[in-house]
Design a protein around this nucleic acid. Structure first.
Lengths: 296, 296
DNA sequence: TCTTCTTACGCTCGGCGTAAGTATC
DNA sequence: GATACTTACGCCGAGCGTAAGAAGA
């Protein structure tokens, strides 16, 4: 189970071709053939059907393991080499755009923290590789359920906030007067496609158990104000945590009641945070504890 | 970053000796030295101080990544080879002893499922290697927080139940009359040490932020009734979910109010469950949804 | 001086490329 | 018969062991 073999295997599976994979990896196709043969011999089972080149059942299973394994190998290497060239930075907090709710902002110390806003998917990687000491990710989830994070390193998560999810509608929208909405009613509408700033459309479909959720304009940045402005201007709908959706000029935030999902924010860190990172983590989590106490 | 090199590295770090590691791994100590040198050259940083042999800062970081990586490599291999020899079994559910709450039991289908009770730590591994299709793990956690699972494969978790945590006291115990207890008040008491059936003592200390929690009798099995009987007989205290702690003859269950923790049960599965596994997962989760609806 | 890690050196075998072979569309 | 994977074979280098060297207790 040499990582080199795994890498060629996933490449072959992805491209469905030995020769294509060889080209991409800079090997001869003979070498690729030998790699696959070695893996199959090692594991004692065929992994690919030839002609067409398709993973077998065992091969599918291996793919599920191999991709994250390779990711983690890279992350580990990146982390250690970065440490080696450690330029002794301060405390860095990587955050998804909509994870910066009022509660989190209130808990931030007045100085000494570098804030870095990244796309949601990049945050676990940033924490894993040590680019950031702490991460804040958010997403919609069933209440009480952890978020699904890309799996790049052994990370610990801690819920820091949950708030209702709202649909941001322009004032002029026929449903703007409603006091609550169901996601299913909006499956046929046009949605802003902003995977890095808002909620990815695929996530909406998953939460709703299907539906079109046709993409309107696509926005690749991470600026929430751009997103709210686009929604207010009628370029499409978007889902946001209530705190981010309220108070947008020209738009109204209507809470989503079905399916029962919440906007959840989680703190992500590596192992046990130490020093300044531990203090900041403590403050973020303490906020959540207080809130729970008040809720009862 | 050859896994062989990583393996020797973690072994050397663990044993704090090149020669000891060589003996354990079946290499000469020269080979071990070369492995470490290769790794250090590859990563461009010293990983170990010699004499005494201790990880450097970068080395510590590498250790955090390496151990889970090696675990996952093994899990991946085990999973694929098991698939190759697939004896086409039915649906298997691996569960921790105290995860079998009333709600879960009610959701189980009448037939067609193999139930396997394992120690808590073994369950992620069982799901990762395909020994089980679904897993149920439990533990105490801050409300709304995911459990910390050993990291052996990309697994998805889903909260299925949360219930109060109780201390199980013998009738005759001086605190048996209390209506609620704080964990800190019991830090000096003797506790049953049953990491596989109950809550590990280390977890208690972590939840309480320290404290002795001196071990009394140790029980290595997974039978909850043994645990409750031991507690009733005065062999030590133990923490259990309310449903498991109530109705024990000769003992009373007193709820724990401080720290604010709950007994949480999570469903663990690999990727997207399919077929019968998906149906069972759906039933377990549906139970939780119903319960949430009722709670409001 | 003894223990323990490092370095030098030679050997073997793993793994890649070239090229011929084979199977499938 | 063209395309794409497999097998044969030779070469090179990675990696191990033996043995000598260096450095710390």
């Amino acid at each position: 189970m040499d990582p080199h073999l795994l890498r060629t295997y996933v490449t072959v599976a992805r491209l469905a071709s030995f020769s294509e994979a060889a080209r991409e990896l800079g090997y001869t196709q003979s070498a690729v053939s030998q790699h696959i043969a070695a893996l199959e011999q090692d594991l004692g089972a065929p992994l690919l059907t030839r002609r067409p080149v398709t993973p077998t059942a065992a091969g599918e299973r291996l793919l599920e393991h191999a991709a994250p394994l390779l990711l983690r190998l890279d992350a580990a290497r990146a982390d250690v080499v970065r440490m080696a060239a450690a330029p002794e930075r301060g405390l860095t907090l990587a955050t998804a755009p909509t994870a910066l709710g009022p509660r989190v902002l209130a808990a931030l110390p007045r100085a000494g923290v570098t804030l870095r806003v990244l796309a949601r998917d990049e945050i676990p990687a940033a924490v894993a590789t040590g680019t950031a000491d702490l991460g804040l990710v958010d997403g919609i989830a069933a209440p009480n359920d952890p978020l699904r994070l890309p799996d790049v390193a052994p990370l610990t998560t801690h819920g820091v906030a949950e708030e209702p999810v709202c649909v941001l509608l322009p004032d002029t929208h026929p449903l703007a007067g409603r006091s609550a909405l169901r996601l299913g009613d909006l499956a046929a509408a046009r949605w802003l496609d902003a995977p890095d700033a808002g909620v990815p459309l695929a996530r909406l479909r998953a939460a709703n158990g299907g539906g079109a959720f046709r993409p309107a304009l696509r926005y690749d940045g991470t600026d929430v104000r751009v997103l709210t402005a686009l929604a207010a201007a009628g370029h499409g709908l978007t889902l946001l945590p209530r705190s981010a959706a309220s108070g947008v000029p020209g738009a109204v935030a209507v809470p989503l009641t079905e399916p029962r999902v919440v906007h959840r924010t989680e703190l992500v860190y590596r192992g046990a945070p130490r020093g300044a990172a531990a203090r900041l983590a403590g403050r973020l989590v303490e906020r959540e504890r207080e809130r729970e106490r008040l809720r009862e």
